[in-house]
Design a protein around this nucleic acid. Structure first.
Length: 432
RNA sequence: GGAGGGGUGACAGAGCGGCCGAAUGUACCGGUCUUGAAAACCGGCGUGGGCUUGCCCACCGUGGGUUCAAAUCCCACCCCCUCCGCCA
């Protein structure tokens, strides 16, 4: 949530920043008007309530002094005011409700570094990496045998059974088997191990309360993309970001605790309602996939470093796997609504001949912390909202696809990179 | 799922219709004392909101209700503990 106090103090600045991401000035004006009305109504209601309280106190005193008549008279007066008060409160609550629902839909202010752009086609490439790049090797060329899409490689080798996935749960659900299943398990193990020097491993619930989903900004805005279990009032998490961001919801944490860094691998559930028909083959877009997430609560002055650390770790994993990738600075049109700045990592996968998004490393400033009410104690003893940063490291289904495509050999087998040897039981060759 | 007990400030723990936003203790911060520290003593010490910055309002698990007045009474729900049942 944006800071309403900032909106009051510098409405033009806030409007200008939000205009960059397509929020109209009139939307913000509506909010400003509602805020003014809310405060006015609140004052009216509170003034009445103060009177009720004062008279009630006098009723008590009169009763104590045995002044029955006076007490009775005051009682009636207070009752009357009380009725006015509840009417006024009702109005204030209604105004507050519409203010709040509008405010929850307002996206975060983009960082100045975020480039202008209408959609993902206007993201700005920051860098590329490939094996041998630092010793002058050119961008890799891929052989014919690497140009088979992973769903074909997977079927050939018997390590991916999409028909079985569809049979069990419908389209866009994958079933990995044999070495394919072991591979995806190994990837999670590989990543979690790599982060344990600085990140506490968490195994959170995969379901979350509505309140939890609100904190990250997934609700109410993206409701259609979430799986709901209405009967129990629960939502399936679309990313570990959701539970991790709410771990300390409503708490005030001591300054010296920061940064608080956590990592978790979870299944991620997404309805993909807006992308029906896209990427229907293979494992590039699934309703359920595994992902390791890196997350930090930090002080504002630590945010830059925390963001860089997550980015660096995601890159290290990709370099360890020997995959070709690039970094993109997301433009205003592609930035997630809660984010102030996001850098995406995309892996090049030769079989599908595409760059695949495998991580988004985002800095939310205090937008999520304000929703989740996570604060720290400042040096002068007051409180302030923390910053949150997070990023995937990494999304395994797409990595799985990139690996089997990139490392497919001329004889049709797949030769996995060395770093996975400890997790694959030294079985780095997958053949049918 | 059944029976019983309980959710109050950082923590422990009183209060069970009327100066209670809340006793007391611990912790914490400041001061006195001390060569220094400890102890002792004195003072301070929740969060959020509104505006006429001094005041007002809200918050005692959550949401309703009763009342002139609710932390306190009533109802529903949630969570925790103990026992029983069931289960991986």
């Amino acid at each position: 949530m944006i800071d309403i106090a900032q909106l009051r103090q510098e409405p033009d600045f806030v409007k200008a920043q939000l205009a960059r991401r397509g929020v109209s000035a009139s939307t913000m004006d509506e909010i400003i008007t509602l805020d003014g009305e809310h405060r006015q109504r609140l004052q009216e209601a509170e003034a009445l309530r103060a009177q009720v309280k004062e008279i009630s106190r006098q009723v008590g005193e009169a009763n104590k002094a045995g002044k029955k008549d006076e007490a009775e008279q005051l009682r009636l007066r207070s009752r009357e005011l009380g009725e006015q008060e509840s009417a006024a409160s009702e109005v204030a609550a209604q105004v507050n409700e519409s203010l709040r629902s509008k405010l929850l839909m307002v996206p975060n202010l983009p960082d100045p570094r975020v480039p202008e752009g209408k959609d993902e086609t206007e993201n700005v490439e920051i860098s590329q990496w490939w094996v041998g790049q630092d010793s002058g090797a050119p961008f890799p060329t891929f052989a014919e045998h690497q140009k088979k899409p992973h769903w074909e490689v997977g079927q050939e080798l018997g390590i991916l059974d999409l028909e079985a996935g569809a049979k069990l749960a419908g389209s866009m659900f994958a079933l990995y088997r044999g070495a394919g299943a072991r591979l995806i398990r190994s990837l999670g193990f590989y990543a979690l191990n790599a982060h344990l020097d600085a990140y506490e491993e968490i195994r959170p619930p995969h379901f979350a309360l509505t309140e939890t989903m609100m904190s990250t900004g997934h609700l109410p805005k993206s409701e259609d993309d979430m799986y709901a279990m209405e009967r129990d009032g629960l939502w399936a998490i679309p990313t570990a970001e959701v539970p991790l961001t709410s771990m300390h919801r409503g708490e005030i944490l001591p300054r010296e605790n920061f940064p608080i860094r956590m990592t978790a691998q979870t299944s991620c559930f997404r309805r993909e309602s807006g992308s029906a028909g896209r990427d229907t083959r293979g494992v590039l877009r699934l309703h359920e996939f595994d992902k390791v997430e890196l997350f930090a609560y930090c002080l504002p002055e630590q945010a830059e470093e925390s963001h860089a650390d997550i980015l660096h770790r995601a890159e290290s994993l990709l370099q360890g796997l020997g995959l070709t990738y690039r970094l993109l600075e997301l433009c205003t049109g592609d930035l997630g609504s809660a984010s102030a700045r996001t850098v995406d990592l995309e892996v090049f996968s030769p079989g599908v001949d595409r760059w695949l998004e495998v991580s988004s490393v985002s800095w939310f400033r205090d937008y999520q912390a304000r929703r989740a009410n996570v604060r720290y104690r400042t040096e002068d003893g007051s409180t302030a909202f923390v910053h949150t940063v997070n990023g995937s490291a990494l999304a395994w289904a797409r990595i799985w696809a990139a690996l089997v495509e990139t490392y497919r050999q001329a004889d049709g087998s797949v030769q996995l990179p060395e770093v996975l040897a400890p997790f694959m039981g030294n079985q780095l060759t997958i053949r049918s």
